[in-house]
Simulated scan of single mutants.
Amino acid sequence: MLKSGPSSGELGGSAPVAAARAGLEVANAQIFYDSHVEAVRDISFAVPPGQIVCLLGSNGAGKSTTLKAISGILFPEKGMLVSGSITYDGRRIDRVEADEVVRGGVVLVPEGRRLFINLTVEENLLVGGISRSAADRRAQLERVYDQFPELPEHRHRISGYLSGGQQQMVAIGRALMSNPTLLMLDEPSLGLAPKIVDSIFEAIVQLRSNDMSVLLVEQNAHLALSVADFGYVMERGRIVFDGSANDLMESPEIQEFYLGMNASKQRKSLRHVKHYKRRKRWLS
């Protein structure tokens, strides 16, 4: 577990660029809403370059709040990172505006897609590349259409009339328009048919093969672990368990609480499992 993170300056500042990519590092982050409601407590984790890392946990565990903190969009909800640090490739990103975070290569696809439903598919995509030159936008647009071959035939269709799966493709494509190096996805399978979910996750795996890092928040633990390299489990704003995707998939506790693979009907709190007691430093 990370207990501290480098602080090499801020995006857009005068700090020297690191010789090699360091990826995302969240160190001892504590997040409050309205200055007194603690949503995330002292969490630390990393997303190395070119890997898929998943955050697992039930509703209210703090997963989406964590993504918002990384993206710099807590302020509209009166949220604040009160301690700890968030760095990307060695530079602090918790002290800069959201648009600077995007220009630094970190982009979020929020839960619920959040498209401009009165704009066409192509107009939505072009909005995602608004900070790039016209030539770059056109080139990136073609890459998005290659990534999601179902979209070109709908390029002039109003996005509000698309199916949920098509809208999710547009939402991911819009994020890709800024050419990120870290893509964060918040519940990409939510409300989608299994066949569509499979195609979305195939695209996510392909992004990793293109050397993009992915931070995935997903309640479908089996699905998330099937594509991830590493995973963290959050409960009540704290990370209570972590390990490689294979280790988590084989863990009896993860199988019982998140994969539904235990025949016993008795449900226990993670804090009462001996394996978690050995990690009580996360629960203090």
Rank of each mutant, 00 (worst) to 15 (best):
G57F: 11
E250K: 15
G129H: 08
G90Y: 03
V205K: 15
E25A: 15
Q219Y: 10
V37H: 04
P49L: 08
L192Q: 04
Y232T: 02
T65M: 08
R95W: 00
S131L: 13
V240M: 06
I31C: 10
N246V: 14
G23F: 05
L283Q: 06
R114G: 05
K63D: 12
N220R: 06
N210Q: 15
E253F: 06
Q51T: 14
V217Q: 04
A228C: 11
A175N: 12
N179T: 05
G260T: 06
P48A: 10
S4P: 00
L67R: 06
Q30G: 09
S85V: 02
R281F: 13
F201D: 06
K277T: 11
D242F: 11
E77V: 09
T65A: 10
F230E: 08
R91Q: 14
A19I: 00
R21C: 09
A203P: 01
A263K: 08
A15L: 09
K274G: 01
Y88G: 00
L126Q: 07
F201M: 03
V144I: 08
E187F: 10
P110A: 07
L115V: 07
I172A: 12
N28G: 14
S133I: 13
L185Q: 03
Y276D: 03
L215E: 08
P110N: 11
K274Y: 02
V197E: 04
L176W: 02
K280R: 13
R271D: 04
Q167E: 04
L185P: 10
R138A: 15
I172G: 05
H275Y: 06
I239N: 02
F75M: 12
S44A: 04
S163C: 09
Y145N: 07
D229P: 05
D146Y: 01
V107T: 15
V144R: 01
V227A: 09
H272T: 14
V96K: 03
L56T: 06
M184W: 10
S83H: 02
A22N: 11
N118W: 01
H272W: 03
S133F: 07
R137I: 12
T65R: 07
Q168Y: 12
W282F: 15
L108S: 01
M249V: 11
S14L: 07
R21I: 01
